[in-house]
């Protein structure tokens, strides 16, 4: 049945796209905050943000299960208003987002810290609000890092298996993503389905890696400001000779 392939693909794509959007926004917000934050708690907050990267995915999934389950800190209040997260589609997004977040956060924070604060300050003295500084200066200048973080978190959420299985389970047509579907296909001895799904994953992975290479490539003009050195080939690209040089 074609839907055996399409259903996991569709669920995976929905999950991965939403997860990428969520981690993109949260990762940038957290990276922006931590690249400025100088308080004593910095190493602890930083560690907490990166923790899911270090822990085994099943441990993260189990932790989320405890937190979001019927008797959990978050799950219990939600169950009172009639909402269950565990073993539902949103659970695939939550577990993938938690697993992918550290990659987006780490890469973006590193990129933000490389941005010359003078350039951001210049924007401020020119009347820019903090919001405008972020989207018109910090993000463009940190773009190669932000793009890398986005692609990495996209790839991580596409490959997410352990935490998803713990929190969202394997409900065909509802929570079965491609990695989960492959695992259960092999368990059931359905090698054909496993191979097809693997081919789909390979395609997506290859395309996203190519996109990474393309997006990360810094444009020649963006390669940092030199103090007083201007390569001659750049200086004369417009064909006009420079008077003062």
């Amino acid at each position: 049945m074609i839907s055996d392939y399409l259903s996991p693909l569709w669920i995976s794509l929905k999950t991965v796209l939403l997860t990428t959007v969520i981690t993109f926004i949260l990762g940038i917000a957290a990276a922006r905050w931590m690249s400025r934050y100088t308080g004593k708690l910095k190493p602890f907050i930083d560690g907490a943000f990166i923790l899911p990267l270090v822990l085994p995915p099943t441990v993260v999934g189990f932790g989320l299960l405890l937190l979001l389950g019927k008797h959990g800190w978050i799950g219990h209040p939600l169950s009172l208003i009639g909402t269950t997260i565990v073993f539902s589609w949103p659970a695939t997004v939550i577990s993938a987002a938690v697993m992918a977040f550290p990659l987006m956060y780490m890469t973006t924070r590193g990129a933000f810290e490389q941005v010359d604060t003078n350039v951001e300050d210049a924007a401020r003295t020119l009347g820019a609000s903090e919001w405008r500084v972020l989207y018109s200066v910090t993000l463009p200048m940190a773009w190669p890092g932000v793009a890398a973080g986005t692609i990495l978190s996209f790839a991580r959420s596409l490959g997410e298996f352990g935490a998803t299985l713990m929190l969202a389970g394997n409900i065909p047509g509802k929570t079965t993503t491609i990695p989960v579907a492959i695992y259960f296909a092999i368990q059931a001895g359905d090698m054909k389905q496993a191979v097809y799904l693997m081919a789909i994953v390979l395609c997506i992975a290859f395309v996203s890696l190519a996109a990474l290479a393309y997006l990360k490539k810094p444009k020649a003009r963006m390669r940092s400001l030199p103090g007083n050195l201007v390569p001659n080939d750049l200086l004369y690209t417009t064909g006009k000779k420079d008077k003062t040089a």
Partner: peptide, 18 residues
């Protein structure tokens, strides 16, 4: 800074490279 109307030229110029 945005409300001060003060022009500042940085030592390294701090132009927007993009």
């Amino acid at each position: 800074p945005k409300a001060r109307n003060v022009g500042l030229v940085f030592q390294n110029y701090a132009l927007f490279p993009f």
